[in-house]
Amino acid sequence: MDDYRIVVNQLFGDKTRRISDRKNVPSALFLDPAYSRVGLNIKESKAKGYNVLVAKMASEAIPRAKQIGKTEGFIKVVIDKDSEKILGATMICKDSSEMIHEL
C-alpha cells in the first residue's frame, strides 16, 4: 500500500527509502472470518525479552460487527508493559484485513 513512496524516492528523491527498511508489514489470510497479523506475537515478544501485556477483545464488542451480525472472532494486541508500545496484533474477525493496517 505504500510502494509508491519508495518508487518516487528512488526516481526523484534522495534514494533513502527501500523495501528492506520495512519492519512490520501486515498480512491477511482471506478466510471467513479473515485472519490478520502484524508485528510480534506473544512468544516472539517474550523471546526478545519484552515484559508483555496482552489485551484481548471479542469481536462481539465491536459496534460494526454487531451491526452486520458478524461477531465471531477476536482481536489480540501484544504490548510492551514498560514502554506501552504495541509490539504486534492478531485479528480473527470480519474486516480484519482492513483494520490491521491501523495497528
Rank of each mutant, 00 (worst) to 15 (best):
M1F: 07
Y4F: 14
Y4S: 12
Y4L: 13
R5E: 13
R5K: 07
R5Y: 14
V7R: 15
N9C: 00
N9E: 06
Q10V: 09
Q10N: 13
L11R: 15
F12Q: 15
F12Y: 10
D14L: 14
K15H: 03
K15T: 04
K15A: 09
T16H: 13
T16P: 03
R18S: 12
R18N: 14
R18I: 04
I19M: 03
S20G: 06
S20P: 09
K23F: 08
K23M: 14
K23I: 15
N24D: 04
N24E: 01
V25L: 03
P26Q: 01
P26F: 02
S27I: 15
S27L: 09
A28T: 02
A28L: 03
A28C: 10
L29N: 13
D32Y: 10
D32S: 08
P33W: 03
A34D: 05
Y35F: 13
R37G: 08
R37V: 11
V38C: 07
G39A: 00
L40T: 00
N41H: 09
K43R: 09
E44L: 02
K46S: 08
K46D: 00
K46T: 02
A47R: 09
K48S: 09
K48I: 02
G49P: 07
G49N: 10
N51P: 05
N51W: 13
N51T: 14
N51D: 13
N51H: 13
V52W: 03
V52H: 02
L53M: 14
V54A: 07
V54I: 10
V54N: 08
A55M: 06
A55K: 14
K56A: 10
A58I: 05
A58L: 04
S59I: 00
S59K: 04
E60Y: 01
I62V: 04
I62S: 00
I62D: 04
P63N: 00
R64M: 11
R64T: 11
R64H: 03
K66G: 05
K66T: 05
K66S: 01
I68E: 03
I68K: 05
I68C: 03
G69C: 12
K70I: 06
K70A: 02
T71E: 04
T71K: 04
T71S: 09
E72I: 05
E72V: 07
G73M: 09
F74T: 10
I75R: 07
K76L: 05
K76W: 06
K76Y: 05
V77I: 15
V77Y: 13
V78D: 02
V78M: 07
I79K: 12
D80A: 12
D80I: 08
K81A: 15
K81W: 13
D82Q: 14
S83V: 00
E84Y: 15
E84I: 11
K85E: 08
K85N: 12
I86K: 04
I86R: 11
I86G: 02
I86P: 01
L87S: 06
L87K: 07
L87V: 06
L87T: 04
G88W: 04
G88F: 09
G88Y: 02
G88Q: 02
A89H: 07
A89Y: 01
M91V: 01
M91R: 06
I92G: 02
I92M: 12
I92R: 08
K94W: 12
S96K: 08
S96F: 10
M99V: 13
M99F: 13
I100N: 03
I100Q: 03
H101A: 11
E102D: 01
L103Y: 14
